[in-house]
Design a protein around this nucleic acid. Structure first.
Lengths: 211, 211
DNA sequence: CGGAAACTTGAGCAGAGTCAATAATTGTGG
DNA sequence: CCACAATTATTGACTCTGCTCAAGTTTCCG
């Protein structure tokens, strides 16, 4: 794994971001992508009318910043939801490197197309899903992501507020809250503020695909 | 423009697709992207439950098939909405070529990131928008796309059915129909089956951003 | 021409939004 | 470390947008 070695040499470990700090902002010049090493961030875009749209949450292990690649400026802003540390991967140096490591090109294409796939799943969810389906799916996604990083799939703390969840899924905070209490009443989850336990995964899975 | 020359040499002009014919299907092996030369197509994906989700419409001048690039199989299926002709751009030969034409690499990244941007606008629309906003936005998008190709921005024929529109925007066909008649009553558009005239563009723009 | 598919329109209903009041949690300065 | 303010979350009553069900009309196409 010599390639990994070379890669490691150009990665910069940045200082941790505090909650609410920006990793980058819309229209900043694109010069790096970032890997989340700990914590969690949200990506947002601002509409012409000035209101915020949450485009996604990114947890430990995920890579953000690809959205700036083509036009050389970031399309979204990314904000820390909690204290988070990120690795900066400078892109100009990465481009030099891709000449040496042909697989790297392909790797980037893969990252981008994964993003497209992810966005499209979200489109399907937003287009068809009830409030309960949306929230159940979000919980399952976080659970799955945790699984990949060897964290607990059944007990975790939500890094984002109800406002962010509602904004992301196209729901009001009241509805988000009501769905959480409903899922709890139905013994699918246990939730206390932001700490959540999935008590019946298969029921949650059923709910996420339209009871 | 020698590059364009080289490009032209590897493009294949295929036979026209008839309405309802597939350009490619989900899980087909990826080997080309396609430029729409005339007509219109829709991209769809099928959920686990077997129902169809319209992921987008692609009109004259657009490029489809990028969704297969990373994993070497197409994520979506693409179907002709009307008789359409497409150019096939074989990817393996394009890859050889990118070595000769460095700008081509960048061009592909641009196409992909444009797709991401587009998807994200759709996410914002689906997440926040009322039925009227959704439909107005769709009409404006078609109008704009026509403008780019030097077609009429104010009078055109919708290539897709109400079912497809509803499916795409997360609405029922009844709602689609009602919104059309409402926009007509408000003198924003004139619509007769699939032929549509935008009579008050600024009103339509207002409607699209939330009256 | 006739049947199927696509579209429109209406009446009633339900899921999610709005408005409003309260409770819990977090953060801050004394 | 406590008290108070600010933020965040819950819950209830009511409203409204968009869905369902149903009937009728128009368009398409063999």
């Amino acid at each position: 794994m010599d390639d990994i070695d070379k890669l490691n040499r150009i990665i910069q470990r940045g200082k941790p971001l505090q909650k609410g700090e920006y990793l980058y902002r819309t229209n900043d010049v694109f010069n790096a992508v970032f890997a989340i090493r700990s914590g969690a961030v949200k990506a947002i875009s601002i509409s012409e009318k000035g209101d915020e749209q949450v485009m996604g949450f990114h947890l430990l292990g995920e890579v953000v910043g690809m959205d700036g690649l083509a036009e050389n400026i970031y399309n979204n802003s990314v904000i820390a939801l909690e204290t988070s540390s990120v690795c900066e991967i400078p892109f100009n140096r990465l481009e030099e490197l891709s000449l040496l490591i042909p697989t790297l090109q392909r790797h980037f294409l893969l990252l981008m197309s994964r993003e497209i796939k992810h966005d499209q799943q979200l489109i399907a969810l937003l287009s068809k899903g009830s409030a309960e389906m949306k929230i159940s799916t979000l919980l399952l996604n976080i659970s799955t992501s945790n699984g990949l990083r060897h964290l607990s799939t059944n007990n975790f703390t939500l890094p984002m507020s109800r406002v962010d969840i509602g904004n992301f899924l196209g729901l009001t905070i009241e509805t988000v809250s009501r769905i959480f209490t409903r899922l709890q009443k139905n013994k699918v989850i246990t939730i206390d503020n932001r700490s959540i336990s999935i008590t019946d995964t298969s029921a949650l899975r059923t709910a996420s695909s339209g009871a």
